[in-house]
Design a protein around this nucleic acid. Structure first.
Lengths: 228, 228
DNA sequence: ACCTGAACACCGTTCAAGT
DNA sequence: ACCTGAACACCGTTCAAGT
């Protein structure tokens, strides 16, 4: 590996294109996370892919958590950047929420990371966007924080749960519907005296539409906001 | 795997008082997590505390994740068990939410674990309780799931964020108010052109009441539910 | 400034061997 | 049935040494 590196370094141009940078590291991390899940992000796998030593990565990032948040932030920034402007606020919030939902569906590790990165850049990006729309909605100053943080917490809560589901399903090599089928069967076998509600909705679980339910929750909160 | 064998011994002899059991392991794990945080739960620390070998623990639990969920479940079961019955449904939901909030404030690792344990026993316990109250509220069958999952996701979302905050604060050896002060100062230094909302609420951050905000979010959702 | 890669200080998990 | 503890296969992070 060191020989390869030295040869490349001898050719100035190629070396330049291949040289490490925070960006290249983050992109490699995203590729690893997307293709093989959260457990696949190790410094060994990362340095192999980047054809460098493990220690080199530490010149550009502080530690693994820093890298995970940077990767998460890159995805969130892309999603928010692609969002159209100039809508009526309610629609803008719904569109933002749905795009985040879809992004987390495509990158479960983003959901897991968001769910534990309070106050960090990726969550602040979302907070800001929601905040601007809540203002546009005409919510008075002293009620804005409650409205914004309710929406944000709800989105992050769903993110975390979906990420957990996706991870469990991956660990058992099941697709989404098989996994929900298993969960439904476990729920339906719980003691009906203790778990009457869970029992009664177990059957709906495999057929239900996560995305529609998520949006229904957003609408519930929006409806509560506009009611005041 | 002796999930069941641990209570009854074949020869009916009383088990030594200090012998291992799933319960004792879970209690030791809770003590470790509470006193020193999530990173303190290792098989070495656990076996030291239980005065046994690391491998012995595996006779009673499947793996570390199993243990973490069992510990989380023990706390959740205790909180829900202590909840008074016979209230009007809205109050019951608020009380449940607040008690969970307080429990997570006291045990941040519970929040972190809940935020990534979709469909597992601890989240199902909460789901069931909320579900019973949503039914009592008179929400029609086809709207129950949306209402329940919105409340649950919101609670778990706040849990995860609070746990993340508590963990970050612990890692930097800061108390809650110093930590929020730091976060506020970071937020207020963000580019005002890009982060106008975040900028404007940064000042409120250190003084705001997490618990009251949390409850305001619950009320927003309850209000949306009762509006339909 | 940037990179190397061996070394360090851990981890969770397994398993042959004991009681 | 239950426990021991050494061994295994990893990890993230550091750092003296190189370019």
């Amino acid at each position: 590996m060191s020989r390869w590196g030295m040869i490349k370094m001898a050719h100035g141009k190629q070396r330049r294109e291949d040289s490490l940078s925070r960006e290249r590291i983050v992109e490699a991390a995203i590729a690893l996370l997307d293709s093989s899940g959260e457990s696949a992000l190790t410094f060994k796998a990362l340095s192999d892919r980047l054809e460098t030593g493990a220690g080199a990565i530490y010149w550009h990032i502080d530690n693994k958590n820093d890298l995970l948040i940077a990767a998460c932030d890159a995805v969130v920034a892309r999603v928010l950047g692609a969002l159209p402007e100039n809508r009526i606020p309610q629609e803008a919030i719904r569109a933002l929420a749905l795009d985040m939902f879809d992004a987390i569906d495509a990158h479960p590790w983003v959901g897991a990371t968001l769910a534990r990165s309070a106050g960090q850049l990726p969550t602040v990006r979302i907070l800001e966007r929601i905040g601007q729309q809540v203002r546009a909605l005409g919510v008075p100053d002293d009620a804005q924080w409650a409205a914004v943080s309710a929406l944000l917490s709800y989105i992050l809560g769903v993110s975390g749960q979906n990420a957990a589901n996706a991870q469990l399903a991956r660990a058992r090599n099941l697709d989404r519907s098989d996994f929900l089928g298993e969960m439904s069967s476990v729920w339906s076998k719980l003691d009906p005296a203790e778990y009457p509600f869970t029992n009664s909705i177990a059957a709906q679980l495999p057929a239900h539409d996560d995305r529609a339910d998520f949006l229904a929750g957003i609408d519930l909160i929006l409806s509560g906001i506009s009611r005041r």
